[in-house]
Write a protein that binds this DNA or RNA. Structure first.
Length: 635
DNA sequence: CTAGGGTTAG
């Protein structure tokens, strides 16, 4: 012992001290205090010296050394240790080999981990589970499930660890094994009420869109913790059920749930969807006050929340304050500028990103930049970037969506023929989204020739989309082709389905006021629809002409006008005018694209009342000031 | 020795 202490570096000293103190084999508290950075590089030497000097290297040594390698992700040292273990000592140890699987997983070397499992003379539930969870954690769902099946075939019974891991890989049916089958196995093995298994299980159902099943699993859990609560909240948020997510978050918070950074991240996603700025600020305050560590993911979702709530200044402030940024941080910020039509800011930030070189742009980055150029009227810059991508100067493979951005870019700039030629030259058949974007351009720039061709092609691919009929009909109406308008309307009535009813809302003192078309549900509906009428009379005096081509119903003009005045965004705008102080902008959110007539209406509010209006629709932000919109009437 | 929830885009 004494000799060893003299010649061996500090790493082995740790071991010796630990043995003398009869500590458990993990180095627990002592490891950080006693180890220096160069210790693991001395590992091999230490081992050699120990065996040369006749010291028995026992299980405990190996385990401690392995723990070190896991903690430090010391790959080369771990590999040497592995060789040592297999060649000289404990070749049969299931325990040590399982630790090696964990070690290789931590080093992101699944192939090495798998080799350890495959070479194990015998396996137990822990070694199977270690490998299954390695696959699950790294996103290899197929491999995880496949191994799970092999485990069952081998006659090993899974435990709660196995189920919690394997369920992560079960979202959707994997063909040979479904989440439901695993669920029944869990019931059979009596793990359904286990918190870890339960949260994994409810998460699986939620990711599969089965939110009711997820909720009932959640409600049946005998105990709840942060993770299970977060899982159900984020389940709602990920499905776009933002209000449900918010309501549940507040309820669970009231019941004493201790939120952590994942919880906040999830609820922020819901608040982004709702554009609930007041709630968002409140959550941000909670984060600051509760001293939840500010992890990158949380900050990313704050950037996104502020930008989707219309406050780019706060987004940028969050972005600038970050010590570490991932590609998602950059993307969230770029998307923010892009949706607000701030093309210049998009390019500047993109340049900064490329200069810093800390983070590599990915496909989403380029999408954000291209659509930013498009919405910001910088089409030539956008085209340059697209060609940098096709020539390999930007290392991102162009995808369908990138081509779509270029079509949008050209079309928006009025270069409709060029956009059409571009589509013909694409290496794939145009998608409905791409044709729809060109059709929109044809409507704005009154190109009936191409519009008609593209429109009919689109109606063949997507006959169920009512929006396509409306745009093509607008185009016909603009050139007085009423016969075609009528026939289009008949086709639409036969084939189209209205998937999502139009809905607009506005946040007032942390309460969301939602309006549907021709709303009858809001408590102040009489007052609100009275205000819409009043405004329309006032605006007509200022030259407003209702754009009846936005209504495709087969009714007389008076009826059409009535339908137009019932649009949800007009109700929300008028409510904003009544209920908010003159000093603040009116912030309205719509779940679909805003219609031309409501866009005109908002312009007039900004002009005649001198109120700034911020309207977020499905695609982007519209900021109305003095009768003009930041989108330049193209959206 | 093995375990669950999270951020951008569409």
């Amino acid at each position: 012992m004494l000799r060893a202490r003299r010649v061996l570096p500090s790493f082995s000293k740790t071991l010796i001290q630990q043995q003398q103190l009869h500590l458990p084999s993990s180095l627990s508290n002592s490891k950080h205090a006693l180890l220096t950075n160069d210790t693991t590089s001395n590992l091999h030497q230490s081992l050699l010296q120990m065996s040369l000097r006749g010291h028995a290297i026992n299980f405990r040594h190996y385990n401690a050394l392995l723990n070190e390698c896991v903690a430090k992700r010391a790959f080369r040292e771990g590999k040497r240790l592995h060789a040592h273990i297999i060649k000289t000592h404990y070749p049969q140890s299931v325990y040590l080999r399982t630790r090696l699987i964990v070690f290789y997983n931590k080093c992101d070397c699944l192939e090495d981990a798998r080799r350890v499992l495959d070479e194990m003379p015998e396996r137990n539930v822990v070694s199977w589970t270690a490998m299954i969870s390695a696959y699950s954690q790294r996103g290899y769902a197929y491999e995880a499930l496949h191994l799970f099946v092999q485990m069952l075939r081998s006659g090993t019974e899974p435990n709660e660890f196995t189920f919690a891991s394997v369920l992560t890989s079960c979202a959707g049916s994997m063909g040979f094994f479904s989440g439901r089958q695993i669920h029944s196995l869990i019931i059979k093995c009596n793990y359904e009420a286990h918190v870890y298994v339960g949260s994994s299980l409810l998460d699986m159902y939620a990711k599969d869109g089965k939110v009711h099943e997820a909720r009932s699993i959640f409600e049946c859990l005998p105990e709840r913790d942060v993770v299970s609560c977060t899982a159900i909240i984020s389940g709602y948020a990920q499905l776009g059920l933002d209000e449900e997510a918010l309501v549940l978050f507040r309820q669970l918070q009231g019941e004493g749930m201790q939120s952590n950074y994942v919880t906040y991240t999830s609820v922020l996603t819901a608040l982004s969807g709702l554009a609930a700025l007041d709630h968002g600020k409140q959550v941000h305050n909670h984060v600051l006050r509760s001293e939840v560590p500010s992890f990158v993911v949380l900050q990313n979702s704050l950037i996104d929340m502020y930008s989707k709530c219309g406050n780019l200044t706060y987004s940028r402030r969050t972005f600038d304050a970050m010590h570490e940024r991932t590609v998602i941080s950059w993307n969230a910020m770029l998307v923010g500028y892009s949706k607000h039509g701030e093309g210049k800011e998009v390019l500047e930030l993109f340049m900064k990103m490329r200069e810093e070189k800390k983070v590599k742009p990915d496909s989403v980055t380029i999408l954000a930049v291209l659509s930013g150029c498009s919405h910001g009227g910088l089409e030539d810059k956008g085209l340059d970037i697209f060609y940098d991508m096709t020539s390999g100067k930007i290392e991102v493979e162009p995808e369908t969506e990138h081509y779509g951005c270029v079509v949008d870019l050209l079309g928006r700039a009025g270069r409709v023929e060029e956009a059409f030629e571009f589509i013909k030259k694409m290496p794939f058949e145009p998608t409905a989204a791409i044709l729809g974007s060109l059709l929109g351009a044809c409507r704005v720039h009154s190109n009936v020739g191409i519009g008609e061709f593209v429109g009919h092609r689109l109606l063949e691919i997507e006959p169920e989309n009512a929006g396509n009929y409306v745009i093509l009909s607008n185009l016909y109406a603009s050139s007085g082709r009423w016969e075609d308008v009528r026939s289009l309307r008949d086709q639409m009535l036969n084939k189209a389905v209205i998937k999502e009813p139009g809905r607009s809302w506005i946040e007032l003192d942390q309460v969301l006021h939602t309006f549907h078309a021709s709303d009858r549900s809001h408590p102040r509906r009489e007052e609100v629809s009275g205000k819409v009428k009043e405004l329309s009379i006032k605006f007509k005096e200022a030259g407003y002409v209702p754009d009846l081509s936005c209504v495709l119903h087969d009714v007389d003009e008076e009826q059409k006008e009535k339908i137009l005045l019932g649009h949800s965004e007009k109700l929300a705008l008028s409510f904003g005018l009544i209920a908010t102080p003159e000093s603040v902008p009116i912030r309205v959110i719509k779940n679909l694209r805003i219609c031309v007539d409501c866009h005109n209406f908002a312009k007039l509010i900004s002009k005649i009342y001198g109120r700034e209006v911020s309207l977020r629709d499905k695609n982007r932000f519209h900021r109305f000031v003095g009768g003009k919109c930041s989108c330049g009437d193209y959206w």
